[in-house]
């Protein structure tokens, strides 16, 4: 009932919002939150095309489901490691502002 394009446009808009947040936010935790938004947009895209292909084939296309699962697993691992790094940095430097973390700056 719903055209494929609606899902893709929703995913594109969500991805754009997430990209804006990931680049412009100062707080490192907010950057991670924005990356979650982008990953969700990717998953909407993957599952929309999964539905499209399953509809064409008349049977379940499992590759799309596996891709979506891998994205979710990667997101979970990324958040766990990212927050551990942020908390370790916070303990050392007493800041979570991304632009203040410039030890590697030449």
């Amino acid at each position: 009932m719903i055209p494929l394009s609606w899902y893709l446009i929703l995913a594109a808009v969500l991805f754009g919002i997430g990209m804006f947040g990931a680049i412009s936010r100062k707080n490192a935790v907010a950057v991670l939150i924005s990356i979650e938004l982008m990953l969700n947009a990717v998953n909407v895209n993957i599952l929309a095309f999964w539905h499209y292909h399953s509809q064409l084939l008349g049977s379940t296309e499992i590759s799309g489901l596996v891709f979506a699962a891998v994205v979710i697993i990667a997101a979970a691992a990324e958040v766990a490691i990212g927050l551990a790094i942020i908390i370790a940095v916070y303990r050392l430097r007493k800041t979570v502002v991304a632009s203040d973390l410039n030890v590697l700056k030449g």
């Binding site: 009932m1 719903i2 055209p3 494929l4 509809q55």
Partner: peptide, 15 residues
């Protein structure tokens, strides 16, 4: 996106 015909497909309930 709108340059391709594929995306105008209506997604019907799967069988």
């Amino acid at each position: 996106l709108s340059s391709s015909d594929v995306i105008n497909t209506i997604l019907i309930p799967l069988e």
